[in-house]
Simulated scan of single mutants.
Amino acid sequence: MDIAYWIVAGLLALFYAYAGGVKIVRSRDGLRPMMAWVDRMPLPAVRAIGVLELLGAVGLVLPPLTGVAPWLALAAAIGFVLLQLGAIPVHLTSGDRQIALNATLVVVAAVTAWLATTWL
């Protein structure tokens, strides 16, 4: 189970570290080609989502790695499930019907949460 967790959580953490970093540093114009929904949100909200994604990525890796508060990995994975469940309606109401990535991230984050119960 540990190896499976590190593979799945590592990939999820890499994805969210990149996505969060991009939301933090790029301008609205730089984000628009890959995220059509940024025009519907205030830029501080987009930046806040980026910070949460970056913190969640750290939360998936650092606590189990150090052994300090490993339950935070479970909390981070559940947070990513909730984040994507909230993202799906945003995509659907904006006319962007491409939610396959969001659905995949829900499943991967749920599997990560299940695997994170190893440390409870």
Score class of each variant (00 low, 15 high):
L85N: 05
K23A: 00
I7K: 13
A73H: 05
P44A: 05
A17N: 02
L105H: 09
T118N: 07
A69D: 03
V51A: 14
D2P: 02
L82I: 13
A100W: 14
Y18A: 13
W6E: 08
V25F: 13
P33D: 05
M34Y: 03
V38P: 00
S27R: 01
A48C: 04
T104K: 02
A19G: 11
A45S: 08
V58K: 03
V46K: 09
L82P: 01
G79P: 06
L54N: 00
L12C: 09
L72D: 01
L101K: 09
G86Y: 13
R26C: 00
A57M: 10
V25D: 01
A48E: 01
Y5M: 11
L54F: 14
V108A: 15
H91Q: 14
G20E: 07
L115T: 10
V68G: 02
A36H: 06
G95F: 09
I88V: 15
A109D: 04
L14M: 11
G20T: 10
V61P: 00
I99H: 06
E53P: 08
V106P: 10
L43K: 04
Q98A: 15
L43P: 02
L105K: 09
A4I: 07
A116L: 12
A13G: 12
A4S: 12
A100G: 09
V106I: 14
R32K: 14
L52R: 13
P63G: 05
W71I: 11
T66A: 07
G79N: 07
A57S: 11
G30C: 06
V8M: 13
T117N: 07
G86V: 04
I7A: 15
A77G: 05
Y16W: 13
G21A: 04
